[in-house]
Every structure is written in structure tokens, then in C-alpha cells.
Design a binder for these strands. Structure first.
Length: 397
DNA sequence: TCTGGGGTCCTAGGACCC
DNA sequence: TCTGGGGTCCTAGGACCC
């Protein structure tokens, strides 16, 4: 039976939330991202309003370039906690129409509304209602695509942004996709698009005409999947998000760092942040990955398994330090460090004989961290800091 | 000219086991 | 001295997405 899938995608989400929360920003170019620091800031644009896009600003553009392109813009640091709140409000609108809802990111979701004809008047009617509710109740604009499957719905929602509303009937799918550029295919980024262009392919229709084996030399196992997408065939179900597989934090220094002590301190802070998020989500990590990027922008990762799963910053930090010793240091100063917890397991899972695997002192350390978590929940992140992270601390910390 | 931070998935090569 | 074919797990890097 034919399905009806909606893809709902908020327009310029972070910037739109800022404009809604601050009437003075409405109608003005708004750029959410790194601090531009008068054009010398490090980092990129996370999101920008359509007024800023008119000046050539795009997400992922270096913030210094955004500054040059649009010096009159309102430059804002992201308020992720706020966006998460508004996101919840958006999702509570979406789940009025179906429980077959799959969040794709903070501001995007798939809905399977197959069989909604009697209750809501069909997929297009649901899409229109969602756009209305989001605008009237939340003061925000969503683009919606309606199609027989996920891929086509996603392409459709993107096609007429902002305030887009595109419905693709099953019999229209092939003609809808054929003229679109290769980059619209899910999973085809700049590199893959280049390779496909080099063998003379330009549009999704060009790929749809091929046999998978014509592409397997170029793309390996992915060829079959890609050709099917190009033909508008996508039977992946809409399902609630899978459990997280990794959870990490990373930071780019304002200036590249030579001092190993500064790198170690950053690692400790990152390990604590990751561990706090693990505890909040009742997860433990079975492995750790350390990431280092040098001044030349060359990135190196090293990973290891932990002796036993943990949600404690000390444990993540200790392993990260051991990994740091394995990083070849030829690239000079450090630009970025990151710590990622991997092999996540839900607490209680695989820990039946917990006591046997706990190290002496783990219980008391966990109590301490729980107390810190509670203080942070009440007074805000950073209210409690390790002595080792306090600037100008005594040298023996 | 400069390139964030959060993720997922795939690939290739090596270790290891049968 | 020469030497198989799977299969699985692990690591590091890279492409891609938002």
C-alpha cells in the first residue's frame, strides 16, 4: 500500500527563534554563530536569517567572511538550551497528527501519516495544518514536503524554502526528481558529486537511468542504494530515533595552543562535560576517542576501550591522557581537542553484577559527581568547577 | 580566506580465530 | 618451506548531514 510521508523542516531555525524572541531583530539580517570579533573571529555561521542570506551569508561560512559580507547584521552566540525548548514545542505540534514520528534533528522530522484521510483529510491537509499551527502558535515558519517516501519528502520540503509546501504524488515522483542536480541525493556531498560529474552525470535522472553495477566501481556498496534513491525508491520506515551510539564534546581554541598543560586542562573540562551528559541520560561509556587537530588543520583520532564502562569524568580523562601520548605530534600547535564517549550502554544493561566491576571508590566518586550534577541543575552549568580548572590556581593544583 | 560542534555511517587494513 | 579461505572485531580516517 502506498504510504504518505511528511518531512517538516523549520526555516532558519536558530535565527527565526532569535527574531521571534527579540522583535528588534525582525526584518534585519541575523547571524547566529561564533563571535566575529571584528572580522578576526574563529568559527562558522550556525544559522542565519533570510535577510542575511540575501547578502550571501550561508550556514557553515567562516564567521569572518560573514562579517565582511554583512557588517550590519546582528551577530549572536547560539542559545542551544532555548532552541531545544522551542524544538519541544514544535514537536508537540507534530505529534498531534501521528505517533509515527521520527525526529531527524532539533528542527526536522519525518511523519508517516498514511491513512490519515478520514481523520485529517490526507497528507497535504496535515501538512497545511502543521504549517498553520507552527505559525500561529509558535510564530515560526516551517517548510513541508509530502511524498510517498522519506527521500522524496525531504527533497520536496527543501525545494521551495522558506515557507515551502510541495506535494509529490506517487505518479509524479520520477518526473519530479529527474531534473534535480546530483547534490540533492541524500549522501551525495561535494566529493561524491565530483566523482559522478567526472563520468558525465549531472542530474538525478542521469543516475536513475543507470544499473547499480555501472556505479559500483565508483561507489562500492553504496551504488545500489544511490540508484534506488535516484529512481525515487525508498522503503525505509519512519521510526523513532535509535539510541545514541556516541556522545562527545570538542573545542577549538581561540588561538592555537603550544602549552601541553593547557591542552590537558581542556581535556579534563571536556571529559567532565561528556560524563555529565552521560549521567543525565543514564548511560555509561565502554570506550573513549580522543581527537586532536593541529595548526595545519590535520586531524588525528585515537581510541581505546575502557577497562569497565563508566560515567565519571575522571575515568574518561585518564583514558584521554593515555591516548594523547599516542598522538604523533609533528603538526606544531594544537587547534582543537575533543573527547567522545563510545560504546554507550544504558545503565543497568550489562551490569548485572555491578559490584564486581566497580573499582574501589567508584561509589563515593559517583556520589560526588551526582552532587555536582544536582548543583548544576539548580544553579546552572559551571557553578562548580574543579580546582584543576581554575585559572591562576596554585601550581600543584 | 579559513575551515564549529554535534553526530552517523562506510571503508580499508590488520589481528585473530577456526 | 610454503601456505587456504572465511568470519569477526577493532582502529583510523573520511564523507556526509544538520
Amino acid at each position: 500500500m502506498a504510504r504518505t510521508i511528511l518531512h517538516v523542516d523549520m526555516d532558519a531555525f536558530y535565527a527565526a527563534v532569535e527574531q521571534r524572541d527579540h522583535p528588534a531583530y525582525r526584518g534585519r539580517p541575523v547571524v547566529v554563530g561564533a563571535d566575529p570579533k571584528g572580522g578576526r573571529g574563529r568559527g562558522v555561521v550556525a544559522a542565519c536569517s533570510y535577510e542575511a542570506r540575501a547578502a550571501g551569508v550561508r550556514s557553515a561560512l567562516p564567521i569572518s567572511q560573514a562579517w565582511r559580507l554583512c557588517p550590519d547584521a546582528v551577530f549572536l552566540r547560539p542559545r542551544f538550551a532555548r532552541y531545544a525548548q522551542v524544538s519541544e514545542a514544535v514537536f508537540s505540534v507534530l505529534c498531534r497528527y501521528t505517533d509515527r514520528l521520527e525526529p531527524l534533528s532539533i528542527d526536522e522530522a519525518f511523519l508517516d501519516v498514511t491513512g490519515s484521510d478520514r481523520l485529517f483529510g490526507g497528507g497535504a491537509a496535515v501538512g497545511r495544518r502543521i504549517k498553520e499551527s507552527v505559525r500561529e502558535e509558535l510564530g515560526l515558519v516551517a517548510s513541508v514536503g509530502v511524498a510517498p517516501n522519506k527521500f522524496v519528502a525531504k527533497v520536496a520540503s527543501d525545494l521551495e524554502k522558506p515557507d515551502g509546501f510541495v506535494v509529490v504524488q506517487p505518479e509524479e515522483v520520477a518526473a519530479f526528481l529527474a531534473p534535480l542536480p546530483l547534490g540533492r541525493l541524500w549522501g551525495v556531498g561535494p566529493k561524491t558529486a565530483d566523482r559522478l560529474m567526472r563520468v558525465g552525470l549531472r542530474t538525478i535522472g542521469d543516475v536513475a537511468r543507470l544499473r547499480p553495477r555501472d556505479l559500483s566501481g565508483l561507489l562500492g556498496e553504496g551504488a545500489e542504494h544511490l540508484v534506488r534513491l535516484a529512481r525515487g525508491e525508498d522503503d525505509r520506515p519512519v521510526e523513532p530515533g535509535a539510541a545514541a551510539k556516541s556522545l562527545g564534546a570538542e573545542t577549538t581554541f581561540e588561538e592555537d595552543v603550544d602549552d601541553p598543560e593547557v591542552v590537558r586542562r581542556a581535556l579534563l573540562a571536556l571529559a567532565d562535560r561528556v560524563a555529565g551528559r552521560l549521567r543525565r541520560r543514564r548511560l555509561r561509556a565502554g570506550g573513549v576517542t580522543l581527537k586532536l587537530r593541529d595548526a595545519r588543520f590535520v586531524t588525528c583520532t585515537r581510541s581505546a576501550l575502557l577497562p569497565r564502562p563508566t560515567d565519571l569524568g575522571d575515568d574518561l580523562y585518564r583514558e584521554a591522557l593515555a591516548l594523547l601520548a599516542r598522538v604523533p605530534r609533528s603538526g606544531g600547535p594544537v587547534r582543537l581537542v575533543g573527547v567522545t564517549a563510545t560504546r554507550l550502554e544504558a545503565q543497568g544493561e550489562g551490569t548485572v553484577q555491578l559490584g564486581l566491576f566497580e573499582a574501589p571508590g567508584d561509589g563515593r566518586r559517583r556520589e560526588l559527581f551526582r552532587a555536582v550534577d544536582a548543583l548544576e541543575a539548580r544553579f546552572g552549568a559551571g557553578v562548580v568547577t574543579r580546582a584543576a580548572l581554575v585559572k591562576g590556581r596554585a601550581s600543584r593544583g
